[in-house]
Each structure stands twice: as C-alpha cells, then as structure tokens.
Amino acid sequence: MREFWDSTIGKKVFVAVGGTILVAYLILHMAGNLWSLAGPGTVEPHIDEYASWLRNFGEPLVPYEGTLWVVRAILLAALVVHLVGVIQLRARNRKARPPEYPARRIGRSWESRLMMVSGVVILVFLVVHILQFSTLTIDVTPLVEGAIYANLYWAFQEWYVVLFYLAAVFLVGTHLRHAIWSVFQTLGVDSPERNGQIKAGASLLTVVIVAGFAAVPILFFTGALGVPIDNEPTAAVLAGGGGR
C-alpha cells in the first residue's frame, strides 16, 4: 500500500477515489436540498423535517446524529486524502516541468486548466458554507438552529449571498466536468468505445448537480418560494409580494 501511495499512479487513484466519495455526497446533498423547493409547508417546512430525519437516522440503534457524524468523518477523510494527494502530485509536477517554461496550450479544456483555481475556491467556499449554515457562525442574516427553511429564505434574500453561492456552484461545475471523466481514466475503467458516453455522462451529471444546487438560491431570491411561517414578524414586509 505504501508503494502504491508513493507512485504517481497510486496517488492519483487515491485522489480519484476520494473525489468520487465527495461527488457521491454532492449528489445526495443536492437531492436533499431539493426538499426546500416544497415550500414553507403548513405546519413545518419539508426541508426541516428532512433535516431532523437525518439527525434521527438509525435511532435508537445509533445515537442521535450518529449517522450524520459517521458520514462527516468519511467525508473529512476523503477530503484530506484528496487534498494531500493533489498537493503532493502538484509539487512533483512543478518539479518535472519548471513553471518558467509553461507548456503551450494545445487543446486542453479550460475546465482542466482551472482545476487548481476551482479547487482552492471550492475549499474556501466549503469553509464559509459550513460556518454559515452548519455552525451558524456567519450570521449576516438571521439564523436559527433547526429552522433550515427560514435560514435559507433570509440568507437568499440578500443578492450578495445568492451571487456568492451561484459563483461557487458554477466553479464546482467546472471542477466536476473534468473530474468525473478523469475518475474513469485514472481508474482505467474507460475505453475508446465507452469514451463518448463517459464524456457525455460526466457533462450531464455536472449539469444536473449544478442545476439542482443553483435552483435553491435562485428560487428563494426570485420569490418563487414563500415566506417561512412563524418566523420574524418583518417577514411579510421584507418579502413583498413573493409569498404564497
């Protein structure tokens, strides 16, 4: 295993597997987010129900939030492996090709050129995102624990929050389009016959993930999703005619 990790190919396999775990999580996260599109509901917003379901998952077999923390631990491990692998590979690549003589661009895609930039920006976004909606530390808009729908609603009334999230999701998309195809190549499970389908599939999955994530801030901002009930007396005033 040690020799495998030390070789360029082995390290790339670790990076690819770590990345695949992160992409799998992104799909689940995106699908879960779509509960917010069910609107404020009559008693409790669906997204809030979904959030408490995630926390109760497996009870009483596993403790409260147990499953959630297991998933978080796996994601953190995948992220660390992905980052350490990429940092070491990048250091090796820069040594192999001194940066003072950059290679001419001969048809490489702009997504692939952006991988390092998009990766770093996504990492920064990830920290901000967790500080905002998980730990509720960045409370530029009112945030209440457990009130997912209301938190989203008030956050996405601010244009700069919407813009920040849309920009981040777009960069996630550029990262994924190159990354998903690359996983197949790095694991060696592609072939010239399947390549067209893999390329199209990678683009399609990227579009689905980006559209799913982008829909939430856009629909909240445009007022397509109603004001949360039982929250903030100024709600009706701020939301204008957006409520249902």
Binding site: T8, K12, R92, N93, S182, T186, S191
Partner: peptide, 23 residues
Amino acid sequence: GGCTNYGECSRVCPQEISLDVIG
C-alpha cells in the same frame, strides 16, 4: 510528473498514440 488528463500528449504525438494507453 503525473497525469492530470489534459490530453495534450496525444494531440502532439507524431504516431497518434491514443489516450487510452494511459487508462
């Protein structure tokens, strides 16, 4: 260095070696 799947190698190759050899 390691491969980052840019595919430039295959685009300049005088013998038109296909990228699937890396796979």
